[in-house]
Amino acid sequence: MPDALYQLVYYSRNHIAGDQAAFTANVENILAASRRNNVRDGITGALLFNNGCFAQVLEGPLGVVEAAFERIQQDERHGEVSLLALSPIETRSFPNWAMGYVGSSAAQAASFSAIGQGSGFDLSLLGSEEIHRILRDLAVEEESAAA
């Protein structure tokens, strides 16, 4: 049971104060730490940031997904964490991403404005399937661009 493959989706609000540089540095730290841990633990997934919110998909064996989520819950850099989904899966949606990040490049920003029509976009309004779909689509784009 702890080894069964699960997918977890949450969103949360950014608590990082300061300028864009501080934010970027923090997200880089988050990503570096999570990639390091995830490679070790066999977790894949993607992190999305927009308009003050984080959304993340984690997939992997249940035990390590739970442990990763607990670390995430204890992190002061965000709050109001809402768990959107926790369900067993057959296959991974992000098999090649130790932790993809969406929210930095211009192309991705363009994808977002299409989703949210600019200003009012709020991740909290999206359900887990929608977040999962956005992240997966962007991951596919990213990979085809890299190929």
């Binding site: 049971m1 249940l62 819950q73 926790l86």
Partner: peptide, 14 residues
């Protein structure tokens, strides 16, 4: 209050 009130995931239970 914030931290303890955040969702737990335990043995597949939310």
């Amino acid at each position: 209050v914030d931290l303890v009130g955040r969702t737990y995931v335990l043995s597949g239970h939310t």
